[in-house]
Write a protein that binds this DNA or RNA. Structure first.
Lengths: 210, 210
DNA sequence: GTCTATATACAGATAGAC
DNA sequence: GTCTATCTGTATATAGAC
């Protein structure tokens, strides 16, 4: 993966403080609107110390996004524990996933990475592969298993089905949220997931025997 | 709409050149990475002239995005001419729409507006309403008509159905493209649309009489 | 390693001649 | 209106003392 991972070896408290402060500021205001002075002040260190840990602003940004990559990958794996793949299980999975996607943290990292896609193309690709791409592949495998167990239409491409399920749940919410629109409350998200899973099962469920 | 429209009254060639140059640079490199010097140079005017037409960088950016809003709204209306709403007509509509969404221009304006969502929240909202929101509402009305004509399940919410159709077509393509991934070729886009419409009709079409 | 103070560069915006 | 030349602030990055 091009998203070179942060080594867990360095656990210096100053380094952690810098990363935390940088993440907060970059996510809130964007890469260009945050000065190294601001990061140093927020982290409670001097600028010289900051430059002792990171060779420059770009390196700091890369390290921060890299850490979020690993965190998101870990969360994706965590979601994988929500196992089964039909009916109530799909709804439960969808509820967890839509809350994750609509969380302020997720929206902020998406905005930030998309914004700097031109300046840091490798970072954007690495982010996709660590986050959305990994989740997509995992869901595709889950649906393939469900298909082999006869819970899904035999003529379906599991990866296409995964895209469809995700697309149905996401609907217009992601676009609205990314463009500063309101984030729905829990009840609204649940309703969206219920409707999406119902449609998915109508299209992909095996015809009930009559 | 909060996206105050650019008056077509001012057709000064220098103004047009500035807007064109600014749009090109902002879309390619992002708001913060483009200097007013660069815009002036690209437009072939001096910086003082630039400031004679626009009070500052933010005003220039707002004017550019505002123009794209009207252009996108016009294109949405144009798409509305692709009328009917089932089967082949939905596929045709989807093909036009996915090409529009995946076009370099569309991706660039989305990236730019999302990137500056924090600094220009009104602009982002206006963009949503002029672009994605308008298209969504239009599709919802079309599907409501189709429903009244018995071409769509009677128990469906047309706006939810619109979200589902759009989500099915978009799938993972938008996320991938926004994060710097490859844009699919025409054949791949057509295949995506065909699969999406097929699923949509399985879920939302009226059960065929037997 | 950590700090204060500073070098260097470039951005946005303007003054004044024509 | 348009240009050249310039002002002023601020950003990244570093030098040197402790």
């Amino acid at each position: 993966m091009s998203c070179s991972l942060a080594q867990p070896s360095d656990t210096s408290p100053k380094r952690s403080a810098i990363l935390k402060a940088g993440a907060q500021l970059f996510m809130a205001s964007g890469y260009a609107n945050v000065s190294m002075d601001a990061v140093a002040k927020e982290a409670g260190v001097s600028k010289a110390t900051l430059y002792a840990y990171f060779s420059g602003k770009e390196a700091l940004f890369s390290a921060i996004v890299g850490e979020r990559c690993t965190a998101i990958a870990a969360e994706s794996e965590e979601m994988a524990s929500h196992a089964e793949s039909t009916g109530a299980a799909l709804r439960e999975l969808g509820r967890v996933w839509i809350r994750f996607l609509m969380s302020p943290q997720s929206l902020a990292i998406h905005r930030t990475v998309i914004a700097e896609c031109a300046r840091f193309p490798d970072l954007a690709r690495g982010f996709y592969e660590a986050g959305p791409g990994r989740g997509r592949a995992w869901l595709g495998r889950r649906l393939a298993e469900a298909q082999q167990q006869g819970e899904l239409r035999a003529d379906a491409d599991p990866l296409v089905a995964a895209d469809h399920l995700v697309g149905l749940i996401r609907g217009d919410l992601y676009m609205q949220a990314m463009l500063g629109g309101p984030v729905p409350d829990d009840a609204a998200m649940d309703a969206v997931v219920d409707a999406a899973v119902a449609v998915f099962l109508r299209a992909y469920g095996v015809p009930s025997p009559r």
